[in-house]
């Protein structure tokens, strides 16, 4: 099934609160090889003016992905993950995410554009605190290949 262009412009309301744990930041920092002390040493983070240890710059993808699942996990949206290639990603931070943050995300499907046999799907996750102050924006573009009927997959 091709990507359903009727989903362009959709907005998904905030899902459950994501509570940022020190252990999760430690795990993520370890996975990307981020060894800066501000990711793990709370005293160093406070000395640098942060409330607690801070997340590496791309950690917001973990939170954004949960919100994106509402869209890409919807069979009617037609985003077949075996045909998806990640095309572009952008993070804009109002401030670093830190341990103890309680965050909610509103997901927007900004654009679905056909280009040379590909559907370019752009989503935007607006991550805020529970009381609505902006924390980060994650804009992600996926390239979805059209189906090949002769393959029958």
């Amino acid at each position: 099934m091709p990507v359903n262009s009727a989903y362009a412009g959709r907005e998904y309301p905030p899902g459950p609160v994501y509570e940022v744990a020190r252990e999760k930041l430690d795990e993520f920092a370890d996975a990307v090889g981020a060894d800066h002390p501000l990711h793990r040493d709370a005293d160093a983070a406070r000395a640098a003016g942060y409330p607690d240890v801070i997340a590496p710059p791309t950690f917001a993808v973990v939170i954004a992905q949960r919100a994106e699942e509402q869209y890409v996990g919807d069979p009617d949206a037609g985003v077949d993950f075996s045909r998806v290639v990640h095309a572009e990603e952008r993070f804009s931070h109002h401030r670093p995410i830190h341990a103890g943050d309680r965050l909610v995300t509103v997901l927007h499907v900004d654009a679905i554009v056909e280009r040379g046999g590909l559907s370019m799907v752009t989503t935007r996750a607006e991550i805020t605190t529970e009381d609505g102050s902006a924390v980060a924006r994650v804009v992600s573009t996926l390239a979805v290949r059209g189906s090949d009927p002769e393959v029958g997959a």
């Binding site: 990307v32 090889g33 981020a34 060894d35 800066h36 501000l38 990711h39 640098a48 942060y50 801070i54 590496p56 710059p57 791309t58 572009e88 990603e89 952008r90 993070f91 804009s92 931070h93 401030r95 670093p96």
Partner: peptide, 19 residues
């Protein structure tokens, strides 16, 4: 991006990052 955060002395100084 670790290269940039370490250079800046603070990974939290990265306010925008795209590719």
């Amino acid at each position: 991006i670790g290269l940039v955060g370490d250079w800046a002395g603070d990974p939290g100084a990265v306010v925008d990052y795209q590719t």
